[in-house]
């Protein structure tokens, strides 16, 4: 059985709409994700300010020179990812790939530097709340950097599929947004852990 009626609505566009949902959803997710970091940061501050002996026995403090170099690397990668996006907007796919790859390399270098730093430390995850919060914060952030590099790899591969990056593509935008997010988190983390050493 079939009955018909005239539907008055204007024809709706569906194609480009859906991609915008993706970006909206991703931004909402990032806002939510930032609250986990907020929880960890405030927990860190609370434990640190209320601790009687913040540093475990035999630990003098954190060496900050190498982490500073690492920070500069990560912050500058935010610039290169911006350049990559601009190249893409101008239609230069190879320029995009170049800067994108550079960003990935800087991210990978950051992770490498982090691993070197971790292996040279004379305290562990269970060395009181100092060790616990240090590894928790840097580890959780490192996990995000690794996720970011993974996402970028995915986007790089997708750029080789013909026609993929002609307009309406939100993956690159989302990845870049995520990368800036990871970057901002690191700056706060660096200030909290390496700059604010005295409790």
């Amino acid at each position: 059985m079939t009955t018909a009626y005239s539907a008055p609505s204007a024809p709706q566009e569906h194609g480009g709409e859906h991609d915008k949902h993706n970006l909206t959803g991703f931004i909402i997710f990032l806002c939510s994700e930032s609250v986990i970091f907020l929880a960890f940061f405030s927990g860190y501050a609370l434990l640190k300010t209320s601790a009687l002996d913040w540093l475990p026995a035999g630990v003098e403090g954190l060496e900050w020179h190498m982490p500073l170099i690492n920070s500069i690397v990560l912050v500058s990668s935010s610039g290169t990812i911006y350049l990559a996006e601009r190249a893409k907007a101008k239609g230069s796919l190879w320029g995009f790939r170049g800067f994108w790859l550079l960003t990935m390399a800087l991210g990978a270098y950051f992770l490498y530097g982090q691993a070197i730093e971790w292996s040279g430390l004379d305290f562990g995850f269970t060395s009181g709340t100092f060790g616990g919060t240090f590894y928790l914060l840097t580890g959780f952030h490192g996990l995000h950097v690794a996720t970011g590099v993974g996402l970028m790899t995915l986007m790089l591969i997708k750029s080789f599929i013909p026609g993929n990056y002609e307009g309406g593509e939100q993956g690159v935008q989302a990845t870049s947004l995520f990368w800036h997010f990871v970057d901002v988190i690191w700056i706060i983390l660096f200030l909290l852990i390496y700059v604010w050493q005295r409790s």
């Binding site: 939510s32 994700e33 609250v35 986990i36 907020l38 929880a39």
Partner: peptide
């Protein structure tokens, strides 16, 4: 807003 705090 709230749930990530419990997750953390």
């Amino acid at each position: 807003i709230g749930l990530p705090s419990l997750t953390g």
